[in-house]
Design a protein around this nucleic acid. Structure first.
Lengths: 146, 146
DNA sequence: ACAAGATGTAATTTCAACAATTACATCTAT
DNA sequence: ATAGATGTAATTGTTGAAATTACATCTTGT
């Protein structure tokens, strides 16, 4: 599966939560309106972010807040919060090991090294991207919009 | 969508074609047996590789052969042969631009920079991986199997 | 105490993308 | 001509993601 929309929606939510701080109570209903997703989808994403310690959510009364400075939150943290299997799920290998052909029996192992290299490259790139940088980008865009 | 199984199957086919050179005629039927895919799926993959100039296929009589040295064929070439949209298709962004919220209106642009960085990282990693290196890996594994 | 408004999650439905399959036109060597 | 391939369009599963439904649980205000 792809680096799914979930990740984009999560970043959306985190920016929203940060920018709304002190002005309004951020509920799943509100985030659903902003992102265009269903409230339950939002709650699942929010729940995953919470389990990873990126945000706190006030049970019952509602309201989400960041747990850390945006400069300390990386895109990789956000991604892994949402994808328990991590980057493994990004690349697919066909299964054919039981077949009587030397290529079939070894293809999975042959692909392991290249695919790991790709995963590592994605990981280290994601680790360099912070929520802070995305918020700054957002503020620049939002200001020039007026 | 993911770096789909198609890519793994394509590498499988290319190794097969290379290793079979001079021994048997490599038909889509044969590749289908080895990979476990349907012959038509193989023909589509083979057809894409052909259009990119990586292999030649003898129309009518059958038989596929590499067009270049394995050391000159990179994983990135293989991948782009199969995915016309390239790495763009790997990362999904939710659409919410029409919504009356500054975050919603700008999120797509905010994500553009990070996602481009990820795509570039994947691309340059894939460009460093050659069919040659995968064939060597395969031969090492196949030999130690005996 | 209890109603209102939230979150947390399980279960189901919907939907889109991918792969498999069917079908058939076309090509090449014998 | 025919046998054995490739090239592709069209259709049919199949699978996984997202949306939705439903309901249990929590917190605060009254």
């Amino acid at each position: 599966m792809q680096i799914s929309m979930k990740c984009s929606v999560a970043v959306h939510c985190l920016i929203f939560i940060h920018e709304a701080k002190g002005t309004v109570k951020v509920t799943s209903e509100l985030l659903a309106k902003s992102t265009g997703c269903n409230p339950v989808v939002i709650r699942n994403i929010i729940s995953a972010l919470k389990k990873s310690g990126l945000i706190t959510v006030q049970r019952g009364t509602g309201g989400a807040e960041l747990c850390a400075e945006p400069s300390q939150i990386t895109l990789y943290q956000i991604y892994t919060a949402l994808e328990p299997n991590g980057l493994k799920s990004l690349i697919g290998v066909h299964s054919c090991q039981e077949r009587p052909c030397p290529v079939a029996q070894n293809i999975a192992k042959v692909l392991q090294t290249p695919y790991s290299q790709i995963e590592d490259a994605i990981k280290s790139t994601m680790e360099k991207i912070t929520l802070q940088s995305m918020i700054e980008e957002f503020r620049g865009l939002a200001n020039s919009q007026n």
